[in-house]
Design a protein around this nucleic acid. Structure first.
Lengths: 115, 115
DNA sequence: CAGCATCCATTCTGATACTG
DNA sequence: CAGTATCAGAATGGATGCTG
């Protein structure tokens, strides 16, 4: 094991990543760079404005993403990952890789059960 | 970016790790190996039996941990990480490392604000 | 010892409608 | 366009008491 004593450090990262839509939002911003509110909404149609707004605010509060408002009509707001936010990428990558394997695992389990 | 298309793979990992006590439980089992219910309870005194039981069941359902019941009186139940569960370690490690940095980040932020 | 059952408080998420 | 406000339902977490 490489993880030592203070076990609870993990909670901080988890606290930031938890939220039904935060990982997707972060991955979209990491992958495609700066994007407008409406772009994000379009790429994740299932999310409601309320939820998107909320999750973006929370990520902003944690300095994970940056929010830039252009004072014009109609309004324009752009979101992007901060440098600090980019430091989350290894975690997202590890989860993504694991998630892929997990899918296989679940499939195998189902196959076993149906034999 | 190394993370490609199917963004939602991340959710599976997150779903398993989320739960107020799951990371701690996993880290304890990864670090110290097989342990009894009461040992875990003692190491995380703030958790209630109900919660400990629930989180352990959920991890068991996902094949992350194994539960062995010894048919004796008084009862004895041991929990351990499965091989599959061990595959989560990179994620936990990444979160742990990040969490440590995050603490520093928060401190610096507070210092800046108080200047 | 290792739970389960019940009740309760809080938080989270969603649906819908409205606005500068 | 990018929100805010309100209401409702679901999920989560906790306190307490009982049991094989």
């Amino acid at each position: 094991m490489t993880i030592e004593p203070e076990l609870c450090r993990v909670e901080d990262a988890l606290g930031i990543l938890v939220g039904k839509w935060k990982p997707i939002i972060l991955l979209l911003l990491l992958k495609n760079g700066t994007q407008r509110f409406s772009e994000l909404k379009r790429k994740v149609p299932e999310i409601t404005q309320k939820m998107l707004t909320k999750q973006l605010r929370e990520l902003e509060d944690e300095d994970i993403i940056e929010r830039v408002v252009y004072p014009q009509v109609p309004p324009k707001v752009e979101y992007s990952i901060t440098e600090y936010g980019k430091s989350l990428e290894p975690i997202l990558a590890a989860m993504h890789e694991w998630g892929t394997k997990h899918t296989l695992h679940k499939q195998q389990k189902l196959e076993q059960e149906s034999m």
